[in-house]
Write a protein that binds this DNA or RNA. Structure first.
Lengths: 202, 202
DNA sequence: GTCTATACGGCGATAGAC
DNA sequence: GTCTATCGCCGTATAGAC
């Protein structure tokens, strides 16, 4: 199908995989060159430095993986439908790439500069409309009055954290990768219910 | 109070701080020696290697910070009281050391060996009695039938994840460290309620 | 136990030939 | 654009004097 990838793309793809698997700091430019099947010097020819390459990869990963989620948050669905869609979509994304969460966790801890954080916030955390909706529906009485910042933190905690401790969950319960996916799949309904139930008076 | 720390302890303490702040891989033995105010060679005299030193520190951190939590899980409190105590104690521990979560996240991703994971599981995740209690109370009808593995994952997700994304939360909401602690303090009651409410029929 | 001095390898990066 | 060769630096680790 796709014709032979060009060199730049080969470097980019190899580095993406390695950064996610082993972490940025445990990946050397020699690893990248060898995995991409290219010469060591070419990494510096196309990207000026390893840090620069990392930047490009990071920006790309954020964009690729948050577009759909932002669309849902900014849509005109009612809150219940929105939460349900968000949880499902988010879990699907992470299931198809379970290393995303550990990778982002590492980056948060690694990079203290504003720019990197802003990239994550404006995407992973871009919830102006969503927050407003929670406040509004609380006032109207559709739902119980809810603090949007806690609600949002609850939601992403319940969705993403299991992927951060995936090796522990798998080991502890003697799960295969498939078993884990099943466990995570169960969480779609579980998490949605937990969140929605809490918004309703009872 | 304490008399002058001996060399071994100085190395241990300096390394602990650096590992948590900058991560193991971004901390060099020269950093450690300089921070501890000792000579480079002494690290190798007392601990055979950096990796060995890391092992000692990791084991110590796990033990120090989970003892109290395990005691609660293994106690004879009823479920409601137990959850409440666990959430409060856990959040207190993390508040007094906000770098613990990012540090452990990094280690999970970094070390794939069984031994390291077992240390975490048998401590952070040692919940035989607790799981049984959830099943039992579900059968008796005290609470709604609840899957213990999901419940436990929910609980630690809600407690710990905010610390993993602490820099993002602070930036996004323009919080100081104090503001963040306040936000986290609010979560004690919030998380407890969320969890307990879900266990009750309504 | 503590220090100096140093070996050794791997790292990121570049100059320069082709 | 791609390669070879190499630089300078830093990381871990050790030998040996005190």
């Amino acid at each position: 199908m796709a014709k032979n990838k060009n060199t730049e793309q080969k470097i980019f793809d190899a580095a993406t995989e390695l950064f996610m698997e082993k972490g940025v700091d445990r990946t050397s430019v020699r690893d990248i060159a060898s995995k991409a099947g290219i010469n060591l010097a070419l990494m510096n020819y196309y990207f000026r430095s390893k840090e620069n390459l990392f930047d490009a990869i990071f920006t790309n990963l954020v964009k690729e993986n948050t577009r759909e989620l932002l669309k849902i948050l900014d849509s005109d669905m009612d809150l219940e439908e929105k939460v349900q869609n968000y949880v499902n979509a988010y879990i699907d994304i992470l299931t198809s790439n379970p290393l995303l969460v550990p990778f982002f966790m590492a980056i948060i801890h690694r990079s203290q500069d504003k720019i990197t954080k802003m990239k994550m916030i404006s995407n992973l955390y871009g919830t102006e409309k969503f927050s407003q909706q929670i406040v509004d529906e609380g006032k109207k009485g559709t739902i119980r009055r809810t603090d949007p910042s806690h609600f949002f933190v609850d939601m992403i905690s319940l969705i993403t954290f299991p992927f951060a401790i995936r090796p522990l969950i798998m080991d502890r319960n003697e799960m295969s990768a498939e078993d884990f996916n099943l466990f995570i799949h169960e969480r779609k309904e579980h998490v949605t219910n937990l969140l929605l139930k809490n918004m309703k008076d009872c």
